[in-house]
């Protein structure tokens, strides 16, 4: 793919949005690929973290927002910790994921998104992450009803899954906070 690197690209709304939100520079990146070398899940990504950084710099919006990488990242923060150029790789990736959501781009790793959605759903309802609710919701979302059934039963037997969520009142407080953010920013 031929890329015309011009001011329009470097200062495109996409690049500004991602870097502004991440409060990070990306032009310091000198492509040493240390971030890629230390990433524990790079083997499952379509582009390494170093490639994503380069693509952000080049304004490659579709590539970045449609990548598996922004969803496969486990947020272990190894990359940003080790980057010799202080590029905030994880924050840039987080910002890119939010831009993708705002633009309605379908997550390339749908089960990861389904997990996060289910988690937020239980927090909105109970104020806290409630594990059985999360699992139920996740199964509805992924339609994979039998995954880990045996494991779940063992956990239940060992008293690791509680049936009743604690603190219904907290859900109300969380919803109040989220609604205020929504009113101010238009979407959460």
């Amino acid at each position: 793919m031929e890329i015309q690197l011009s001011r329009d690209v470097i200062e495109s709304p996409f690049v500004n949005e991602v870097l502004g939100e991440a409060k990070s520079l990306v032009n310091n990146c000198y492509q040493c690929r240390k971030c890629a070398a230390g990433c524990p899940v790079a083997y499952e990504m379509d582009y390494t973290p170093a490639e994503i950084m380069h693509a952000v710099r080049l304004g490659q919006k579709d590539l970045v927002l449609g990548s598996k990488t922004i969803w496969i990242c486990a947020a272990c923060k190894t990359c940003s910790t080790r980057c010799p150029q202080d590029v905030e790789i994880v924050k840039i990736m987080d910002a890119a994921r939010r831009v993708a959501l705002r633009e309605g781009i379908k997550p390339k790793v749908p089960e990861a998104a389904a997990f996060y959605r289910s988690a937020l759903f239980t927090v909105k309802n109970f104020g806290r992450l409630y594990e059985i609710g999360l699992i139920g919701r996740l199964k509805l979302a992924t339609r994979d009803f039998f995954k880990d059934i045996g494991l779940g039963l063992t956990m239940f037997r060992k008293g690791k899954l509680s049936l009743l969520p604690s603190g219904w009142r907290r859900g109300f407080r969380v919803r109040t906070i989220l609604n205020r953010i929504k009113n101010e920013e238009g979407a959460i």
């Binding site: 959605r117 937020l120 239980t122 992450l129 407080r173 969380v174 953010i181």
Partner: peptide, 12 residues
């Protein structure tokens, strides 16, 4: 309440 790690899916 939740510490906020559940916000990974949030647009904000």
């Amino acid at each position: 309440i939740c510490c906020g790690t559940s916000s990974r899916i949030s647009m904000s």
